[in-house]
Design a protein around this nucleic acid. Structure first.
Length: 301
DNA sequence: TGCAGTGTTGCTTC
DNA sequence: CGAAGCAACACTGC
């Protein structure tokens, strides 16, 4: 479920807790025949190369691009991590068992469900560990060189960053109008149009903008586009301010849940009365494309 | 018990 | 070319 706010929360945590530390060991349990020959650590041959290149490197800083985490190392390589559905980093003291690693401090926030699914673990120079939990094993972990950052296949087709100050209403309109016949929900979810928005935030944005998710982009008025643009900026920022959304198993790197799910007005509130003041609507769920959209059947038009 | 639901993205297919 | 659907996975909840 990590969308932009969850990835940003993770990046902020990495900059706060592991920046400046050196990687002294790497372990993984990933091993997938589907990734043989690809630049993905699920291929054991690639992991071997990966390990050689990250060992003894210092973590300089961490950035976010779309939903990717970019960990910059002292040898000019960058660890690129896409958490996909269920991935998240956890920082703390771990001990190795036969098949995985478990948190040492059973009373800490690390001792939650998330620590059951450690697939990758970095030992750090402070004696603690940076573990990566990934229940469904969908995550992507690879290495790119700094000089290839802009041209990397992993990053080159991405649209603009919605929270950048350079992302203006004008640019927003240009981007969504690349798909004039598209349904607005599907266009908001398209990372080549705007990055960082997933199913949860697209529902919450459209609820707040009073726009039906199936509205065709070319039918939207300037006023409506502006409402979506404003809701997009404020809702994503609120997600960050609330430490992300832990509807599913997302946690920050200390293992703590975010609280944005307590502010959901539409997502997974099917059949609840609409919470908008004076609105008599009911939250409805409908498949749009292959995704479930949640929206008010009255004020989202 | 069994199977639908969960959600990101890249690849395949039409 | 674009749109649609599946695959990469594994667990939860009904």
């Amino acid at each position: 479920m990590p969308e932009l706010p969850e990835v940003q929360t993770t990046v902020d945590g990495l900059n706060r807790y592991v920046k400046g530390l050196t990687i002294t060991d790497v372990w993984t349990s990933y091993k997938s025949p589907h990734h043989k020959g690809k630049d993905n650590i699920k291929d054991p041959a690639y992991f071997k190369k990966f390990k050689q290149l990250v060992l003894n490197q210092k973590i300089l800083h961490t950035k976010r691009r779309a939903k990717n985490i970019l960990i910059f190392l002292s040898n000019d390589y960058i660890i690129l991590v896409h958490m996909k559905m269920t991935g998240h980093f956890l920082y703390g003291a771990y001990t190795q068992t036969k098949t995985t690693w478990i948190p040492l401090d059973k009373h800490s926030s690390l001792a939650n469900n998330a620590s059951r699914f450690i697939r990758l673990l970095f030992t750090l120079s402070d004696g603690l560990h940076l573990a990566f939990s990934d229940l469904r094993k969908f995550a992507k972990v690879t290495l790119i060189h700094k000089k290839d950052l802009d041209t990397s296949l992993h990053l080159k087709d991405l649209g603009p960053e919605p929270l950048d100050s350079s992302f203006t209403l004008h640019i927003f309109k240009n981007q969504v109008l690349l798909h004039p016949k598209g349904k607005i929900k599907q266009v908001l979810l398209d990372p080549s149009i705007i990055v960082g928005i997933g199913n949860i935030y697209s529902d919450e944005i459209l609820f707040r903008a009073h726009i039906h998710p199936e509205r065709i982009v070319s039918s939207l008025t300037n006023k409506e586009l502006k409402a979506i643009f404003n809701a997009l900026k404020t809702t994503l920022q609120k997600g960050i301010d609330f430490g992300g959304d832990s509807t599913s198993d997302y946690r920050n790197i200390l293992g703590e849940a975010g609280v944005f799910q307590e502010s959901h007005l539409a997502y997974r509130r099917t059949n609840s009365p609409c919470s908008k003041k004076g609105c008599k609507g009911i939250i409805t769920r409908k498949k749009i494309g292959s995704r479930n959209a949640h929206f008010c059947n009255s004020h989202q038009i």
